[in-house]
Design a protein around this nucleic acid. Sequence first.
DNA 1: CGCCCAGTTCGACGGACATCGAACTTATTT
DNA 2: AAATAAGTTCGATGTCCGTCGAACTGGGCG
Lengths: 104, 104
Amino acid sequence: MESVPAISPMGTLQDVLEALSDPVRLEMVRRLAGAGEAIACADLYEGVSKSTASHHFKVLREAGLTERLHIGGQTYQRLRLDDLEGSFPGVVSSIVAAPREAGR
Amino acid sequence: MESVPAISPMGTLQDVLEALSDPVRLEMVRRLAGAGEAIACADLYEGVSKSTASHHFKVLREAGLTERLHIGGQTYQRLRLDDLEGSFPGVVSSIVAAPREAGR
DNA sequence: CGCCCAGTTCGACGGACATCGAACTTATTT
DNA sequence: AAATAAGTTCGATGTCCGTCGAACTGGGCG
């Protein structure tokens, strides 16, 4: 078990920005931040297949943005906000707080 | 003259993140932020051709990150930090302030 | 005027990546 | 154990995008 690591070392700022540059992943992170706690995989995406979602989870995890948790047979993703703030203060928190459209 | 617009409407947060997800462009923005004022094109990049740099300038401009200035026959790029902070508070300022590697 | 320099535009090329379905794995349930 | 469900992995496919050189443009200058 645990063939897949639940957590990865924090990536570079570049890794984080590349991860967030995809609309699907940005939305995932937004939901995770909005919830403030771990969310079940299925509640994190719409409009893409399961395999695509799994791919995005992997990218987020390897960038250091999220970690995986197994609770009651289900898989949850948790935003590593504390670690992110420690490594890149304000970056993720301001991004998830920002409006989707430019507040003009 | 001015066949190319000097400034574009502020893009979405997605546009900004996509623009910053490229290492060359992130470095450009870093230099602009570090200088605190407009910088001549030639001082903004290394390792890529002139045409590639021009392409990146365009992407940054269209995302709303920069504007063009013409001073004494030379072209300068200026980071639109004020507008960016107004639209997406803290996003760009925290990114340029962040270390390249995760400060772990 | 003719030259050069700075920057943009235009194709073209190649690699990277988002996407999917299918097959596999693991755990839970009956 | 068999079956179902949840996620991951694997290939394949198509598209997007970063890159370049060459050609064009616009200015300054001798």
